[in-house]
């Protein structure tokens, strides 16, 4: 097995919160993405997906743990980080916000070329635009973001990333702000780019259905921690963790489960429950578990899932011997 293109090892991100409470936005996350793989990071809004994505790109300082790129620690020097940023690129949810409203399409796409002084600017910009399906590229050079459709804007954002010929693309909710009609096109574009360019892709989404459509592997995140991870077919066909099951039960493409509505408050990273962090909302626990398991749910912390090939979940009901 080659070294993962991108790997988080026990990564922590803490934000100072109100009244001295610390929000553990990312709480010991271990995740690896192999070269050429598409991994979907799934979870409710606020569970720390975007923060983790930024950590992986060196945009967010960590409070602990390590990020490895191709087996090497993420550079910390300014020059090293700059070089890394050529290799890994970011795509965000809202393409209108991702583009400087006063820059033309050409300037937006050319920015990376200029930052890294790669040269041959016009040809590269035209190529990148053509690659994302904006043809003929010259027709888009002088346009401004507000003159484009949502789908075209996201294509421009993707072109701006591709122009640097990255190995890794991190896409944070790349289609959730787009019209349903263009979502498919943008996803198809990402998959085509992966096939043509051998890109490694980490797609962050709150939508399991989307993950199902494009990912090789799925990692499910809850309150700053990955609680289930595995090959897409296995996770979706045989979800292990009660949280994954609840998420899956409301995906229309799957719809073979009774919808499970999660009770309780949306989780707050500033007060992570003891024991299993999901226990206050866990339908399995609410439905009744043997006493010793239920006690463990409330009191015994679960281990961090190691990065490995199989399908794994962190839940006491699956394995009563699980411990921290």
């Amino acid at each position: 097995m080659s070294a993962p293109a991108l790997m988080a090892q026990a990564v922590e991100v803490h934000f100072p919160g109100e009244r001295g409470r610390t929000a553990r936005a990312v709480d010991a996350v271990t995740l690896s993405v192999l070269p050429g793989q598409v991994v979907a990071l799934v979870g409710e809004s606020g569970c720390g997906k975007s923060t983790l994505a930024r950590v992986l790109l060196g945009l967010q300082p960590t409070s602990g743990g390590e990020v490895l790129v191709g087996g090497q620690p993420l550079p910390t020097s300014r020059a090293g980080l700059k070089a890394y940023r050529r290799r890994a690129q970011l795509i965000l949810q809202d393409p209108m916000g991702s583009l400087n409203p006063r820059q033309t399409v050409y300037e937006a796409v050319a920015e990376g070329v200029r930052i890294h002084r790669i040269g041959d600017e016009e040809r590269r910009v035209a190529e990148a635009l053509a690659r994302v399906g904006l043809r003929p590229p010259e027709r888009f050079f002088a346009r401004y973001p507000h003159e484009l459709s949502g789908g075209q804007r996201q294509r421009v954002v993707i072109a701006g990333a591709l122009v640097l010929e990255p190995e890794i693309l991190v896409a944070d909710e790349p289609v959730s702000s787009l019209d349903a009609s263009v979502r498919g096109e943008i996803l198809a574009l990402l998959l085509r780019l992966r096939a043509e360019l051998g890109l490694t892709l980490l797609v962050v989404t709150h939508d399991l259905g989307l993950a199902w459509n494009i990912a090789d592997r799925i990692a499910v995140m809850y309150l700053g921690r990955i609680i289930e991870e595995g090959p897409t077919e296995q996770v979706l066909a045989d979800p292990q963790h009660p949280y994954t099951r609840a998420l899956l039960s409301v995906v229309p493409e799957v719809a073979r489960l009774e919808p499970i509505v999660l009770a309780g408050e949306p989780p707050d990273p500033a007060s992570v429950p003891p024991g299993c962090r999901f226990h206050p909302r866990c339908p399995l626990l609410a439905a009744g578990l043997p006493d010793e398991v239920a006690t463990r749910c409330r009191t015994v912390a679960l281990p961090v899932l190691p990065a490995q090939a199989g399908h794994r979940a962190a839940c006491h009901a699956l394995d009563p011997t699980m411990g921290p």
Binding site: L57, R86, L90, L92, D94, S98, G112, H116, G160
Partner: peptide, 26 residues
């Protein structure tokens, strides 16, 4: 708070330059 500043940083622009080149003029 705008996303395009994050994008510019992700492209390798230094924080200071991002502000000067994008945020301040806008």
């Amino acid at each position: 708070g705008q996303d395009y500043l994050v994008v510019a940083r992700a492209k390798g622009l230094m924080d200071k330059v991002v502000r000067r080149r994008h945020a301040v003029p806008n």
